[in-house]
Design a protein around this nucleic acid. Structure first.
Lengths: 450, 450, 450
DNA sequence: GGCGTTCTAGAATATTCGTGC
DNA sequence: AGCACGAATATTCTAGAACGC
């Protein structure tokens, strides 16, 4: 009757009840001893149950049995409506056997799964998931619009940059022309003033494209082209934009440049020590040279140092006299140092360039006549016909640059004709490039007109 | 006893049973008639149930009641241990009432709903979906942060561009002034040297605002103070950049450097036909002119070809005197090839520009400083106050450009006044610098040409 | 007689029934033992069925048989004339065989499958959600790729801007040199013509680095080789930016400007009304002044108007003669108008700038030598060594600028040396404008120092 | 928190009805 | 008419859940 351990009361009571021979009338072991029988449900419920439990309901008793894993033993005649008192009810459990109360502890009460119905859980899950998904959807739309905004911004930026590039290029052209003009001016001045021996740059009356000729193969070193250029250039007849300060010098030669003793001297930059100085000796005045040399340019963006490339310009007076052209050369040489890699292009452009600046008075006028629109901004070329060329000179130089994805055909407005050095301005994003010939011929005709 | 309609047999039987006064001993209506009582469970089960159903189990009966939504009516003494034989059992249903068998059809039998298979499958589905959604969430956050980063980048880019624009504009001004200065310088030189008859551009001492007059469209731009300045500047002693070539001229005067017979001649561009040419005829020497003419300008950004638009500037020495207007026209024609479509705009701008440079010498000076690109693209003004001007000339040209969304008031630092031709600067954006050689040789050829 | 396991009652009962020899009269195995026969339907139903089931309907019995997959065995005469009312009925099932009750467990009852309830609804929900999630996934990938594209674009933009900055800086150098050159040129001209006492800027033959000296803060920039070059350059014959004007005029005053009747006059732009004009009265010749004054700069980016800053260009003849320095002053003044707000910076920069242009011949020479950076194109320096400098002059000016997130070390190619006035180019994007006064006064003091 | 009692529900089977071939 | 099956209900056994101890 005592129940030790942790065997639930129900099991103890049930086992006792079944074992108790006094109640065999109502409840007893089956013959095999592995199940028990309730002879008369009704009487058992009303007479026996209350003595052991707090109720007299057969249903509650059965519920407990089920709770502990007992199963009803089906009889063949089950279901038959019998007039007489129903036959006995039989239950069994693997660990509920006659004379073996030690097995009872193996019988475990069923525990509610504490599972409030997956169904409900699932329903909630579904709701949550749905809400989550829609939330994500909303966010995505937001992100999408932001992306579009950004994309538009980017497009605007590209346009801006294109515009800036173009502007820059134009400015560059202006500057170039200005320099040319100034050089010419200085030269002229000398000629007219001194009218003495013209320093022969090209005594033969032909422009020596020495540089071009000498360097048909530009140095691979991109960073110091100017240096090499200078070195190799052996300029014997060069120029001598010497300056002279005095007054009465005579200019003997031609109308062309016979520059002498002008107060301003444009000294060519010679290579270290290799220079052959021309008649500087006689120059008594001070000589001033114009060196256009942006400091920045001497800086290597990444690793190279601006050391060697720094110019050792004019060593003061007593220097050589050079012509403005030389100066220009050096200037251009310097600034264009980078683009030397682009050989072909460089050459072509050089040609064009020279041609284009080969102008006389008319050119000058034309040069002067430049009208700037109040507003010019960059565009986005859409055509591509001329792109190839651009690519040639540009892509190579800007390998890292990625053209905006949204631009179908990145055509720079740049006119980058051959005559137009890309070095400084390069760039641009214009759609069409002017054919070199165009400027070529133009410049030419103009030139010849002289 | 007959049950028609679709009322289940159980309900019909039950109602009949309760209604039947013969069975009142076992089962009957409650006093209120909205529930029924089973007096003696055991007897009712064994004696009555089998007569109506295929069983004699009270449990089965109760099960059916529950299945149809009947509820047991709890009594106060429920739960208490009753010594006496159980009291009556009471059940009720909203549609099960005394004398109202028509309500029975409202009583619906419960139906089981779950298919154990799906359940598990669904659980897995739910898990998958949930994981998926959360995955998406995570990605979205990542994307969001990247978007923000990009946005910040873009803002920085706009700032950069704004900065660059401003810088460019400033440079442009510098260049313009430089040119003006140079022109003046040359002019002065001549004057002082020759002190001869000045070519009168505006002999009357008044600047012919021909252009402006011709195109009576006043500049919309209010922001060009300089322009006004120029206008107001009364330049009586106009320039006479005549050229002289000869040799023996004497430099008698000028305080400055007596430039004489300089080969460089700065010819002023004369107004259409109204010019009185000076002694050009006698000029034997070569004349060199400075032409600042960005080739790019001749290129039409989109579709036009640079062909016809090439400039036929100066026809050599002995040339004529042309009026500035003509030149401007040709220039604009050239460079503006593209923008020709934008007639009005072009004209207006031109007006402004010309107006601003509408001075003889002054014109010349101003002229130097400005090149008009055929196409300039633009920017993104959306506002307004200061933008108006800009918008006037600018927006029309750059309809496609969108100002960054995050910029409330996109005011460019750029001063882009009417007098400020963007032509030069606007342009291009190339990365590479032209190789030195190129410019080198070019410069040379030009030099040699001298 | 007891049936445990999971064999349904019907099968157990049926098998028992067939096996039971007592019922052979009504139901028995076929001869092969693989099917069973019901001899007399009616008697079987009425007499036998009720003893085992809750009914006495042959139909129900057959229904159960069908439910468990039993099939009726068709006889040959079936369908033909069935004379005899009830021949024996035969049913068979693959697992229902004589003496083999162990096969019964293989017999499965058919189960209805469709539950139109939630199941389907939920299934639909799941499908919808799943589709939605996957949709979102797809969109996200799209967004992701767009983001990447944008990012690449942005990177390209930064590169472009870097490039543009560099180009601008280079141009700026060129311009600066040009101006210097011109100034020197003018000066020289005067000297040579007059050959009078040169106004000594540095009579001692040494360049006065007044500015630099005054502000002993050396530029942090290491990238200015040219600068160093200039410094180191031993300039003996320093400049003499004296001006000479007329022929025999004597410069009586200070070393500073005693400008007289020079043909070219560089008039300083004075602040409104505060200007002290020098001996202009006596100037007989016409004087032209070069004023470099970007109109834009005078415009405050947002709200200020370009009013006062407008230049009063050439006042024509009778004007004052000024020295190049003045011109530079005015130029700087103008261009720097915007950045006046940045006082400190402005000053320092101005100092540097002035210092840089305060050169004599050497400087001049250096000026001519344009150095091209070995590497330009916008790169994105990764090192930061050079950043400091840049930061020094730049960051301060562009506080608002955010460097692109993807750039580790935002190194601008720009050389922005101290000697490089930021006023023109850098300018700041908008954030702060340098107050005109600053440069003004500075320039002045410097000027006066002359 | 486990256990016990009670009421209700789930689930499988059972019975019946109806339908289409 | 009869078979096979769907569908609804019925019966039974078991489980869930609420509540009290």
């Amino acid at each position: 009757m005592k129940q030790n351990s942790n065997v639930p009361a129900f099991l103890t009571k049930l086992w006792t009840l079944v074992e108790d021979s006094d109640t065999n009338e109502f409840i007893c072991w089956s013959q095999e001893g592995n199940s028990f029988l309730v002879m008369d449900e009704q009487r058992f419920a009303k007479d026996i149950l209350p003595k052991f439990f707090k109720h007299n309901n057969m249903a509650s008793f059965v519920r407990q049995l089920n709770m502990y894993g007992f199963r009803k033993v089906m009889h063949i005649d089950t279901g038959i409506v019998k007039q007489e008192r129903d036959g006995p009810v039989e239950f069994q459990h693997h660990y509920f056997k006659h004379g073996q109360d030690d097995l009872l502890e193996n019988i475990k009460r069923k525990v509610s799964n504490a599972r409030p119905n997956d169904t409900k859980i699932r329903q909630e899950d579904l709701s949550n998931i749905l809400a989550s998904v829609q939330n994500v959807h909303g966010k995505q739309e937001s992100i999408d619009s932001r992306l579009n905004t950004l994309k538009r911004d980017n497009e605007g930026l590209w346009r801006e940059i294109s515009d800036l590039r173009q502007k820059h290029s134009q400015q560059h052209q202006i500057i170039k022309k200005l320099i040319q003009f100034i050089v010419t001016l200085v030269q002229k001045n000398r000629m007219s003033l001194k009218r003495k021996r013209p320093i022969l740059l090209n005594s033969n009356g032909k422009k020596p494209k020495y540089i071009h000729e000498i360097y048909d193969d530009p140095p691979l070193d991109h960073n110091k082209p100017s240096v090499s250029g200078l070195k190799n250039a052996d300029l014997t007849d060069d120029v001598v934009i010497c300056d002279v300060t005095d007054d009465d010098t005579e200019i003997t030669e031609g109308p062309s440049r016979a520059l002498d003793q002008s107060d301003v001297e444009i000294v060519e930059v010679f290579n270290s020590n290799t220079v052959s100085q021309t008649d500087n000796a006689d120059s008594i005045g001070q000589t001033y040279s114009l060196v256009i040399e942006p400091e920045e340019t001497t800086i290597s963006t990444y690793d190279s140092l601006p050391t060697s490339s720094t110019l050792q310009l004019n060593k003061q007076s007593g220097l050589s006299l050079e012509d403005p052209m030389k100066m220009m050369d050096s200037i251009l040489n310097e600034s264009g140092a980078i683009s030397q890699n682009i050989n072909l292009l460089g050459k072509v452009e050089l040609m064009d360039y020279l041609d284009s600046i080969d102008c006389s008075l008319e050119d000058f006028q034309a040069m002067l006549g430049v009208v700037v629109p109040k507003k010019m901004q960059g565009c986005y070329p859409k055509e591509t016909s001329l792109v190839s060329q651009q690519t040639t000179s540009w892509s190579s130089t800007h390998p890292a640059l990625c053209w905006p994805s949204w631009m179908a055909a990145p055509l720079w407005p740049q006119r980058q004709t051959a005559a137009q050095p890309q070095s400084w301005e390069t760039a641009c994003c214009s759609t069409t490039l002017r054919s070199p010939q165009t400027s070529w011929s133009q410049t030419r005709s103009l030139h010849e007109a002289l």
